[in-house]
Nucleic acid binder design. Structure first.
Length: 561
RNA sequence: GCGCCUGUAGCUCAGGGGAUAGAGCAUCGGACUUCUAAUCCGAGUGCCGCAGGUUCGAAUCCUGCCAGGCGCGCCA
């Protein structure tokens, strides 16, 4: 069954009707084809083309040796008496356009009222255990804007995957072993020494950022016995304590960004538990390892990688790939059958080698899916913000939160597809004006809350859908609004399955737009009681759905603005 | 040289086999004694990078080319 046909019962019913009409034509000998294709229905862009449209006659025309319009007419004739169909038209080259009776729309309101903030959920994922890893920024520096984009997108995607029935866990992999942590330790120790002796040399390859000096000051204040240690102990202390501090501050920044992980996985834990040795042994047993040029290699080219990868360097140490393979093996051993990693654009070369590793370990290739996020360019006043890591000049997640705020930042990161290089306009994002789409959406929510609050003040209850006359909701703008509400389940499913969280951002904007239009042209309070009550139900459903999509994106839904 | 991503309205981007290609911003003109004007209504805008191919039908799929971004380490 195709993705598009899973959720909406109206679509399913209609597809079933078309199916039986086709079967009837075949039985009557009017349609001669080997087998019938899957029925797909789309919601036409143009309202004049009905509630749903089918291209089935176009698809079948050739195999059946018929003119598409003739076939369409035959199908339409068989369906026109159906109860749920108000009108049926054959249009264009042979499309069949279905106009349904309004009842299916009013049923949507009923579903929303029942399901509340669960509206749009489904069981597509069937409870499959899925692990989503994202951000995993290096713990030796502050998080940058690509990390921030990954955080916003990963968190939204996690919410979407949960909504469609996956058993989702999120994880942040902390690279707390390896060369860069040693450089970090030396940088921190040098800054510490410089507190006493400003001429103390800073390592040439050290990390220049201000944050290292800040850490050194805290080290001075907090670690009383530090000066009693010998240099090796000091370096080790700088490494473990310093990394812990960095991880802690990353956690806090992400928390402010409304992103929390189920687990922060430490690379060190793999080393301590000899997981790297274990993986090497396993791959050796399976025959994918060989020695050459004084190093140990993984034959990843057996699985389509460009070349084989070094696992143990000729100096006896491991490469990062070794730990990464061990990490992914650990994930799989924990029972996750679907692994998704969100990585930055500089890691695309990594896909082939990790997929090779997963296969070499005996798991299917698609057990691992790697999503590559494209770059973020920051603009301020229309000009690109230049950043230099060397000079310690860069915009961090923290800076971003200070400058534009959490809601705007999250929306801007989520609103573009992963593949798209993102131009993030700081000036626009920080602006609390009509140019800013976040506020446009939130404002719609706030307006509804205001209506509901005033209704409450006037002792007008929001009645249950069964207690109001839905048929009064027949204004064109009301119908448009309800149709948009009806699209949410498909929209959530598509966004989750296609890994396209930006679709939710667009949906939210469209729904808000339809509401604002409705708000201007249709009043709620002050209308005759029956209409007022029906509109209160509608407006309340819009509020629920707006809150639902904002929550999926990790954005707040303010009641007043 | 090889790989990944991108090329659609003045700008930022949707649409990823279907009907006349969309939105926001920008530009111009209207709408507040009535539930929040952070809003609404109206107006113009396109060789969908180029060239072939597949198809009843291509912005969409395939091939080649052009342009931009990013990678291609016994760094992570």
């Amino acid at each position: 069954m195709s993705v598009m046909n899973i959720l909406s019962t109206q679509k399913q019913e209609l597809a079933a009707l078309i199916q039986s009409a086709l079967e009837q034509l075949v039985a009557q000998g009017e349609l001669q084809v080997a087998d019938l294709p899957e029925i797909t229905l789309e919601i036409p862009k143009d309202k004049a083309h009905g509630d749903f449209a089918s291209n089935i006659a176009l698809v079948l025309a050739k195999p059946a040796g018929m003119k598409p319009r003739d076939l369409a007419e035959k199908i339409a004739a068989l369906l026109s008496t159906q109860e749920m169909i108000e009108k049926i038209e054959v249009a264009g080259p042979g499309f069949i356009n279905f106009f349904l009776t309004k009842q299916w729309l009013y049923d949507v309101l009923d579903v929303i009222e029942t399901q509340q903030l669960n509206y749009g959920a489904s069981n597509y994922g069937n409870g499959e255990k899925l692990l989503l890893e994202f951000v995993s920024a290096n713990p030796v520096g502050p998080m940058n804007v690509v990390n921030a984009r990954a955080a916003a997108i990963g968190d939204t995607l996690a919410n979407l995957l949960k909504a469609v029935g996956y058993d989702v866990a999120t994880e942040y992999y902390v690279n707390d072993a390896g060369v860069q942590t040693e450089i970090f330790a030396r940088s921190l120790l040098a800054r510490y020494r410089q507190l006493e002796d400003p001429s103390y040399p800073f390592p040439e390859d050290g990390y220049p950022g201000e944050y290292v000096a800040d850490l050194a000051k805290r080290l001075k204040a907090e670690a009383a016995d530090f000066d009693q240690m010998d240099e090796a102990e000091q370096l080790e202390y700088c490494r473990t304590w310093g990394i812990d501090q960095m991880v802690e501050s990353q956690k806090q920044d992400l928390q402010k960004f409304n992103v929390e992980f189920d687990r922060w996985f430490r690379e060190q834990d793999l080393h301590k538990a000899n997981k790297l040795e274990e993986i090497i042994q396993l791959l050796t047993e399976r025959g994918y390892m060989y020695e050459a040029e004084g190093a140990l290699w993984f034959r990843s080219s057996d699985f389509g990688d460009d070349k084989d990868r070094v696992i143990i360097k000729n100096d006896g140490t491991y490469t990062y790939v070794t730990a990464d393979i061990a990490y992914h093996y650990d994930k799989l051993k924990r029972g996750f059958t679907k692994l998704i990693d969100i990585l930055g654009p500089d890691h695309h070369g990594y896909i082939a080698r990790m997929k090779a590793a997963v296969q070499a370990l005996g798991y299917p290739e698609d057990a691992l899916e790697i999503l590559i996020l494209q770059y973020v360019a920051l603009l301020r006043d229309g000009k690109q913000v230049k950043m230099s890591k060397r000079a310690g000049e860069f915009i961090t997640l923290q800076d971003l939160l200070d400058e534009v705020g959490r809601d705007a930042a999250r929306y801007f990161f989520v609103m573009r597809s992963l593949d798209s290089h993102l131009d993030f306009d700081l000036t626009l994002a920080a602006e609390q004006s009509n140019e800013n789409p976040v506020y446009y959406i939130q404002y719609a929510h706030a307006r509804i809350c205001s209506i509901l609050a005033q209704a409450e003040q006037q002792n007008i209850p929001v009645k249950s859908i069964e207690a109001v006359d839905c048929k009064l909701l027949n204004h064109e703008l009301e119908i448009d609004l309800i149709k948009k509400l009806a699209e949410l389940p498909d929209e959530i499913l598509t966004a989750a399955v296609e890994r396209a969280p930006h679709r939710i951002a667009s949906y939210a904007l469209e729904l808000a737009g339809l509401f604002h239009s409705f708000y201007t042209h249709c009043h709620v309070l002050g209308e005759q009681d029956a209409l007022r009550d029906a509109r209160l139900v509608l407006v309340n459903c819009v509020r629920i759905v707006l809150q639902r999509v904002l929550r999926l994106m990790g954005i707040s839904a303010p009641e007043r603005m």
